[in-house]
Amino acid sequence: MLLADEVSSHHPVLSDNPYQPHMARIVRIYKMVENNHLFTLRFLEDHLAHSFRHQPGQFIMLSIPGAGEMPISISSSPSRPEVLELCVRRVGRVTNALYRLRTNDVVGVRGPYGNGYPMQEIIGNDLLLAAGGLGMAPLRSLLWYALDHRDKFNNITLMYGAKRPEDMLFREELTALVDRTDINCLLTVDADPSATWKNHIGRLPSLFDHAKIDPMRTYAAVCGPPVVYKFILQRLLELSFPKNHILMSLERRMKCGIGKCGHCGIGYKYTCLQGPIFTYWDAINLPEMI
């Protein structure tokens, strides 16, 4: 017979609780773009910092004590462990609360969740990353994963467009890639009022003119606002891309991240379990996906 306190210490709610946030410290806040800061987190418990493993394209549930919990895609690459980088847009109650925090403050993290990019399928092929605006946040994990395992991929192309240079996420590190020969890094802005931009000016799809893409051996990871999906998908389909080689990262409301709360349902799939990475084939078959 177990004593009462022994019973409760063995309770799965205490010992094996998928909703349990683990506390993490904010070690750096980088003001990348206005209202799009990059937060670097490290778990308070060293063993968690060492053991946390994720796939590019996965997300975590971020808790700001007292304000709530929300899904955030992981922007750092699994090839650079120990810390998590989250590019968080300031849009609502929870993110506002996060923006009031300072370095050394503590937040809650659980995860990683979601399917992530199908790395086993992608490896050995060409990789095209196409992002518009804030869509770079989830793609950045995949980008650095590929660059850190460069030998596992053939040609790598990045197409990224933002409104103005100052709206470009990860601008410094991406412009530093432009001169590298192991990636075709194409950056464009719609307009450059300050006349300081040394890369492309024009809409994102125009970058296809500067890229050599072999649709049969390329996986395309696309992320951005609906207009980006519309035009990029159009170009990819014109190139006869296989529909299951087009990978999209979707955003949905989530309260659990683990397929229980029901909010992220699209048709019969849950974005948190079967997504957030869906192929274009999935999108055709699931209503209201994009």
């Binding site: 007292g66 709530g68 309260k255 229980k260 709360c261 029901g262 909010h263």
Partner: peptide, 22 residues
């Protein structure tokens, strides 16, 4: 389906996380 909401105690950052039917 359920919703999750955090609330705080008066004058504190302490509080509780509740789920409720949605």
């Amino acid at each position: 389906c359920y919703d999750v909401a955090d609330d705080v105690e008066l004058g504190s950052r302490a509080g509780k996380r509740t789920r409720l039917w949605d």
